[in-house]
């Protein structure tokens, strides 16, 4: 066990966990931030996507020991009022079915728009292909990303 100080959603947290513990489980089990989801544990589905210094990262394969001073943002901290343009676009297009994958989709999409403010269909498809939606809401995810980007 080792002690880590994490900066999550603008707040500082201290945890005492094994160095190998993936950030996902630190968030869910220790910080009680369950918005970040577990889907595969192998960086195959994107359900666990968070931002590490603004970049989309699969938290299920990121050991807490390698987070260091990076700023972590989870779905709970994407916006204060749930009004990030991506969240608003998600509601406008009523994207969710079961909703389980959607925090990961939203975090991934928000990261995409930071680097690519006006993505093409192909750019969206490439960037979002690591996020599985078992309910098949891809079409609306694409539309919502376009709306969020102002297209």
């Amino acid at each position: 066990m080792a002690k880590y100080t994490l900066k999550v959603n603008g707040k500082t947290f201290k945890v005492d966990v094994d160095a190998s513990t993936p950030l996902l489980w630190v968030l869910r089990d220790h910080l009680h931030l369950p918005g970040t989801k577990y889907g595969c544990g192998m960086a195959l589905c994107g359900a666990c996507t968070v931002h590490l210094n603004g970049a989309a990262t699969r938290s299920c394969v990121l050991p807490v020991s390698s987070v260091g001073k990076s700023e972590i943002t989870t779905i709970e901290g994407l916006s204060e009022q749930g009004d990030h343009p991506v969240q608003k676009a998600w509601l406008e297009h009523d994207v969710a079915q079961c909703g389980y994958c959607q925090s990961g989709q939203i975090m991934n999409a928000a990261a995409l728009l930071k680097t690519t403010p006006n993505p093409t269909d192909e750019e969206i498809e490439n960037f979002m292909s690591g996020n599985i939606c078992r309910c098949g809401t891809y079409l609306r995810i694409k539309e919502a990303i376009k709306t969020a980007s102002g297209q």
């Binding site: 009680h32 931030l33 369950p34 918005g35 970040t36 989801k37 577990y38 989870t74 779905i75 709970e76 994407l78 749930g82 969240q87 998600w90 509601l91 009523d94 969710a96 909703g99 389980y100 959607q102 925090s103 939203i106």
Partner: peptide, 22 residues
Amino acid sequence: SKKNAEGPKIVTGKPLFGLDYW
């Protein structure tokens, strides 16, 4: 058409699912 009643909770990552129960 009416929007999903739980939409706002879903997009903000509220603990709606069994796995989130604590």
